[in-house]
Amino acid sequence: MPKKVNVICTNCPMGCGITLTVDEKSDEVINIEGNKCKQGKEYALAEYKNPVRVLTATVRTNSLENPLLPVRTDKPVPRDKMKEMMYVVARVNVKKPVQLGQVVEQNIMGMDVNLIATENLT
């Protein structure tokens, strides 16, 4: 039995509602409709197969002035792993000084993704 999966494209303000028809057994995408351009098709396929996002958060510091340091992942991570990753982020403590772009936590959850500072901590 084929199933229907809906995604909304975020490439432009159109926000096309795209419907994928997927074979439930083989997980193969049989049809994509509702997209008004080519990028929409690629987006829908990626969103179905492996939706990824950059995770942004904060970590604790030893600075009284700036108790938090903003961080992000250095590459997009699977959407479904974001909540789990926050438990790792919550345990990170950094000591000043930290430079913008510096890795503050390596290889999170063994996923080959690093957490990097997005602000200087002096």
Binding site: T56, T58, P70, R72, L100, T118
Partner: peptide
């Protein structure tokens, strides 16, 4: 910008997906 730690800044100006503090810096 310092409190806007999410990404999505600079996609047009720098052609790069940045957080608020990165854009500000």
């Amino acid at each position: 910008l310092h409190q806007c730690i999410h990404n999505g800044f600079g996609l047009w100006y720098f052609g790069k997906d940045m957080s608020g503090p990165e854009y500000a810096n």
